[in-house]
Design a protein around this nucleic acid. Structure first.
Lengths: 126, 126
DNA sequence: TAAACATATGAACAATTATTCATATGAAAG
DNA sequence: CTTTCATATGAATAATTGTTCATATGTTTA
């Protein structure tokens, strides 16, 4: 082991000496931490809202159900792009759809989605 | 212009014939659509929450202010990674910080952040 | 059944992004 | 002033992701 590697090992095993004031709090928080999976799901949810095409689609649908070609017309996005994004939103259960003749009618799958969107909009206008 | 290109031009200029039922609604929505910038900002906000390292950091900070090395200890992430992500969160004004001796103490910048996080957590546990 | 319309999808490409490694800065203690 | 600790940052890399293009699927109408 080179001297450098020894040094690295030291850094890994010895934990910080800082803490002091906050160590107790950190321990408590640690015990109540949501699990890895919960954080993963949470970030996946927000990731879905983290793209302007998808946000636009969701905003449009928040005004009422509509078919793909309505969305294409409303936003300035390719039919293909809309369709790809709708698939992701559907997978994430943020939207649902039903077929009606040639059309596919999409809509927001539940009220939480609308609430989160509104919260976001409220936040950015401070 | 090749026959294929003529065909494409046709597709671009002629808009869909579908609509019918929804055209009126779409027109109304279109008049009240938030502008491009608003959608951009909104998606940027959610993008910040769309990474599990950042979500973990924000969750930790939602329990109270703490320094970088507390966060490193609490989550299983490199000091460097935490620091990089804190910079992004700071730029997005989701966290603020103050210096205290050698340490940098970070905290959630306003209540909206906490609310949005909670909404998200509520949503994923349905 | 063939043509027209609405939507979906696979592959390719470009762009963005999160992490790591190495090192720099900044503050305090000796 | 040198060392040590806490944090920040630049460059490189790997992985993820959004769009486009071409085409496929599914549905209605002539």
């Amino acid at each position: 082991m080179s001297e450098r590697e020894v040094e690295k090992e030291k850094i890994k095993t010895e934990h910080s000496e800082c803490g002091g004031k906050y160590v107790e709090m950190v321990k408590k928080i640690n015990d109540n931490m949501p699990c890895e999976e919960e954080f993963y799901d949470l970030s996946e949810l927000f990731k879905m809202l983290g793209d302007s095409t998808r946000v636009k689609i969701l905003y449009a649908l928040s005004q009422g159900e509509m078919c793909v070609c309505d969305i294409v017309e409303l936003l300035d996005v390719t039919q293909s792009a809309v369709s790809h994004q709708l698939r992701l939103l559907k997978q994430a259960r943020l939207v649902k759809y039903r077929r009606s003749g040639k059309s596919a009618i999409y809509s927001i799958s539940d009220d939480h989605v609308y609430t989160i969107l509104s919260m976001g909009m409220e936040h950015i206008s401070e």
